[in-house]
Design a protein around this nucleic acid. Structure first.
Lengths: 340, 340
DNA sequence: CTGAAAGCGCTTACAG
DNA sequence: CTGAAAGCGCTTACAG
């Protein structure tokens, strides 16, 4: 691990200039500054507390924070599980709020004694993740795709299991199967739609765009959807939800208006945690192991630390975890003669 | 904020000795060490990264970690809400695992650049919180009572709302009202039982110890309880759960065995988050605002920072937040003639 | 815009 | 067990 002296020697600058560059002092020449920041990332410069190197890892939100979500909580559990052995501590961060006006992201992280970051993002904030990665700061994005190959990613495979979910409904003789996905696009959700399309097409069923619903990924979104389909002349007999909370909301609302599940409507949801066990009947769901995702994210970060940054700078880590369809009580065979 | 030099001057020691004491070097005399640690807490010694003082606050588990719980997630949201303005970062910590063999807790926190801690504890680990507070390290315990007046505490008032909940059931003409509380004692849960007893007694109803059930505070605990009472000759007509998850489990299990809620059984639960909206019918519950609890916890800590520790060392902060009974669909009037 | 020098915060052989 | 001294990591007036 490099000190400011080491960077100065490597770059043939004085420690003073390196220090200024790392502290975002405006006096330093832009070109020099750029070289210093590059070297800091290549040589893995780490600040010290007293004489000890800092050992923090950030759980950093690039977009809106969603600390309260079961997914994030499970991720953190997995992360801390693995981190403790190495003596690392987890710091929670909102990237946009934490960064000072004329500061790069690496700056900001280093100022806080952070060696690497696990990034949570919305699709709107993907650009921000790309920037952080391109600065050369060790980071792993959880749960997003990137075209850019140099960004390390850890995520679940939604496509296969989405296909499984729809196939399960088709096996139960359903034909009018609808899918409900988050209003906000992200690559993971696009996969879920792709899985739906693939399954329908391969089994010879038509893909009707009116059966693809965009909803808010909250309980309320599911409630609204039930009201919408209740008013349809030929309503779907099965619903596939690409998010946990609207699936729960839909089950409740369906029961409120007197439908019996799965007799009047089959529902498949997604589950990051144990929500499927909290409703009655227990919900058939695609389950992703968010805790394991957290563990793997740390391992990826650790790999980025251990390889000398300069040699393997462009070798990003990619890990894709399988998800599983768990069949429970919210799906059942299509009853012949069910109308409205 | 004091440096090692300042401590040395104050104590008439060399900086070397102070440094050794703070680093837990065994060479230092026990008495000297004790004096140094006291001074560090009194003068609010803070280590530096480079030349900047560290700005971390710990979310520290004294007992088992429960990061995944909705309560903890909401607490963290509230905490980070308030912390960001001051430029603080939140570090997640397991106290027992983080502390080195011959190290005090203040040592450990300072080694990590932490200025103050929000402590989460189980009743089994209360002793540990007392120790941290007695070392003089700025800390606030969330959600526990302490007899010891010198410990800062932020918690919800369970007693009043528990009384309200039972009164609500009595208003609905229920008489055989049972309460189900966590197997593991903690002061907050003792309050919930006390509220139950007070309400029953004040309304002239007998308190039957066979109506006080000890269960695991998990979904499974609620499921088991329903099976137990289903086998009772004179089963309770209403259940008051002092924890969120078993209440959910009980609602599900009751419906599984064919009971209708609230017709066959009224249920009141506790809710830290939004679980009450995820079941059908929506659950009547005592709601505590865990997010607000987090905000208040930070404010308490900030107060401990701002007052000169030496002057006000024994003036702990205490904040007790109100909770509220929200009536929904899981409670209803006792139907006359209900048997079995 | 950069470096040499002074200096703070901290730690650690060395001497006692 | 303690301190004086050397020295690392870093920053910041000062000079150019």
């Amino acid at each position: 691990m490099a000190s400011i002296r080491d960077l100065a020697k490597e770059l043939k600058l004085s420690p003073a200039t390196v220090s200024r560059a790392l502290n975002n002092n405006p006096l330093v020449a832009p070109e020099v500054r750029r070289r210093v920041l590059n070297a800091a990332n290549k040589l893995q410069y780490v600040p010290t507390i007293g004489r000890r190197e800092t050992m923090n890892i950030a759980f950093a939100y690039a977009g809106d924070r969603s600390i309260g979500s079961p997914f994030d909580a499970a991720l953190m559990e997995g992360l801390t599980d693995r981190m403790e052995a190495g003596g690392f501590d987890l710091v929670i961060l909102d990237v946009k709020r934490a960064v000072h006006p004329r500061e790069t992201f690496s700056h900001m992280f280093r100022r806080k004694g952070i060696r690497g970051a696990v990034l949570r993002t919305t699709s709107a904030a993907k650009e921000l993740c790309t920037q952080i990665a391109e600065e050369g700061f060790p980071c792993v994005v959880v749960g997003e795709h990137f075209d850019n190959d140099s960004i390390s990613v850890v995520r679940s495979d939604s496509l296969t299991s989405s296909r499984d979910a729809v196939n399960h409904l088709i096996d139960l003789k359903h034909e009018r199967i609808a899918i409900a996905v988050n209003l906000v696009d992200d690559s993971d959700h696009l996969d879920r739609i792709a899985g739906y399309r693939e399954a329908m097409t391969s089994r010879g069923l038509p893909v009707d765009d009116r059966m693809i619903f965009r909803i808010a990924a909250k309980r309320e979104g599911g409630i609204q959807l039930i009201r919408r389909i209740a008013a349809m002349p030929e309503r779907p007999t099965a619903l596939f939800f690409a998010d946990p909370l609207p699936a729960i909301g839909a089950m409740m609302e369906a029961q409120s208006i007197g439908w019996s599940i799965p007799r009047d409507l089959s529902i498949v949801g997604f589950d990051d945690a144990e929500l499927r066990f909290m409703v009655h009947p227990t919900m058939t769901a695609i389950c992703q192991d968010a805790r394991e995702l957290g563990r793997v994210a740390f391992e990826a970060l650790d790999l980025l630390f251990s390889q000398k940054g300069r040699e393997l700078q462009n070798s990003a880590v990619r890990r894709i975890l399988a998800t599983q369809l768990e069949c429970h009580g919210s799906t059942g065979p299509l009853l012949s003669g069910v109308e409205k």
